[in-house]
Amino acid sequence: MNSFFRLSFVSIIVVVLLGSVVADDVAPDLMFPVPEFADHPIPTASVPEVEGEVAAVWDVLILFLALSLASYFTLVSRSRRNIVLLTISCLLWFGFWREGCVCPVGATQNIALAIFDPTYVVPLTVVAFFILPLVFTLFFGRTFCASVCPLGAMQELIAIRTVAVPRWLDHSLGLVAYIYLGTAVIFAATKTGFIVCRYDPFIPFFRMGGNTDMLIFGSSILVISVFVGRPYCRYLCPYGAILRVLSCFSKWRLSIPPDTCVNCQLCEDVCPYGAIHPPTVTQTPASRQHLHAGFVR
């Protein structure tokens, strides 16, 4: 009799314990239990699926098409009108419609982070956005900057009262871009932050909203770019710094043949970006010693 009670007591404890374990697994411990309704099953809220993957593939295709068109307009048809039209289209698509993301300038940081952090997985779109303009630059020059980049387009279209920047200042400020590139890579690789995105000048305009820092910085760049052609591209853009180096080795590019140039300097005066330099004097082995010009043209 005694053993029977003990057995039943133990089995009750086991059942209670088991029950509590099952209950812990399923029913949440709530302050107010979920009521059981006669004819109303408890619904489950739904959350939306991930969107935007398809659009990203289109972005890469459009980038490729735009780069090809830009190269064609620059090198073959030499049509300034078409280049401006392409600039405006790219500004509308990559800038205002896709809201400036993903862009090769920011992609530099994703690539840096992906190289240094194996756990970070960089989307293929970002890799394509980083690499396509690089390859195009190696063959056709910086056609990406010329008419595809929405950041460049913003400055290009309002550069109406440009003044010449002295060569020494232009060159010195141009070095800031390399420092910015290095800083951006270090900040991204150490997962400290994506500073190029945080201080992107025109994202607030593309998105019609942004924090105060961004708006002040972007507005300043806009105001400056009325008087100084493309200040962000020339003195800050970290991706432009990479392209600047690569463009020295591009296969086909616009150049002024020194043999036929009459040195009228009209083009030099009219270039809003100070990109055209007077023809260098005929080089002698002596002048070459001073590295007036490297092996690049």
Binding site: I111, I115, P118, L138, F249, K251
Partner: peptide, 28 residues
């Protein structure tokens, strides 16, 4: 210039392949 260009294109290709290959180890 040709040499640097070829080297650059190759290194850019290697970089792309490296990143795409690493992608296989985990999802976005």
């Amino acid at each position: 210039a040709d040499g640097v260009r070829v080297a650059s294109v190759m290194s850019v290709g290697v970089l792309g392949g490296f990143l795409a290959g690493r992608r296989g180890q985990a999802g976005e």
